[in-house]
């Protein structure tokens, strides 16, 4: 049995008499320690799927099970790294992470242990030098690093990344992809990452979940990426497995499920 099991999940939104099916019959099983990328055109409901796993939105029918327990509310066992970092601007970097740590480990760790844990997580994303800065004083890439540190500091069963690098420039994005790969290698977390970047999906993931276009989007294809880790983006540029995977995703997105702007 998988660690995270998404079983026949349907999500509909009702506005008055009109019912829109956003996600239809999603079935996916993810193993512990696996890195899964979810890719699809915008509006295909991939963020909705992530919100369902996070418990921020409720499934209409079907069920999501994590480690044998049903997901029906948000919680720190499913930490989310949001697209726009969502750091609290009035708190310093340290205090942003501390808010999470003292909530999750308030009774389990002593004050000194909590401090060490906060610094350890900031070290992990190389942000301990900016511990006393406010989010407004650091760059977008740094904020996203802190967002990852905050999520990791909750010691989640699964880390959910909602297009975390979508708003960053290409170079910063590459740095953060390296950071995420390193963290995944070091800690072995289960991670789900939403992305619309084909290279990012192939580089990071063990499996790529490709979604069809909405409304009533569902999983069109699941592509295993059998490239050994650690992966190096320069070496991969000429790797036939990498190119084949990349081509498969591109074909799916641009041939079979081409995004039609006026789909409605």
């Amino acid at each position: 049995m998988g660690y995270l099991k998404i079983d026949r999940v349907v999500k509909t939104y009702a506005s008055g008499p009109k019912v829109t099916e956003v996600l239809s019959d999603i079935r996916l099983t993810i193993d512990k320690g696996e890195f899964v990328s979810i890719i699809g055109h915008s509006g295909c409901g991939k963020s909705t799927l992530l919100n369902l796993i996070a418990g921020l939105t409720q499934v209409t029918t079907g069920a999501i099970m994590l480690d044998g327990r049903e997901v029906n509310a948000p919680g720190p066992d499913r930490a989310v790294v949001f697209q726009n970092h969502s750091l609290l601007p009035w708190l310093t970097v340290y205090d942003n992470v501390r808010l999470a740590v003292s909530k999750v480990f308030g009774s389990k760790k002593t004050k000194a242990e909590r401090h060490d844990w906060i610094m350890q997580n900031l070290d992990l994303v190389q942000m301990s030098h900016a511990a006393d800065k406010r989010p407004g004083e650091i760059s977008g890439g740094m904020r996203q690093r802190v967002g990852i540190a905050r999520a990791l500091a909750m010691e989640p069963k699964i880390l959910l990344l909602d297009e975390p690098f979508g708003a960053l420039d290409a170079l910063t994005r590459a740095h953060l992809q390296e950071a995420v790969m390193e963290i995944h290698a070091r800690l072995g977390n289960t991670m789900i990452m939403i992305t619309h970047d084909v290279d990012e999906a192939v580089l990071l993931a063990d499996r790529i979940v490709m979604m069809t276009n909405g409304p009533a989007a569902t999983i069109g294809e699941v592509l295993p990426v059998n490239i050994p880790r650690p992966r190096n983006r320069i070496a991969l540029a000429a790797n036939p497995d990498y190119l084949r995977a990349r081509e498969a995703v591109l074909r799916f997105l641009y041939e079979r499920h081409r995004f039609v702007e006026a789909a409605e």
């Binding site: 948000p74 919680g75 720190p76 989310v80 969502s86 609290l88 808010l99 999470a100 909750m154």
Partner: peptide, 25 residues
């Protein structure tokens, strides 16, 4: 909504939400 999501993921209770999110925000 971002701040509300953060509060939800952290499971802040009403009092914590009031002091840590609502008042500063």
């Amino acid at each position: 909504q971002d701040y509300r999501n953060v509060a939800a993921v952290l499971r802040l209770n009403q009092v914590e939400f009031f002091w840590k999110i609502m008042v500063p925000s």
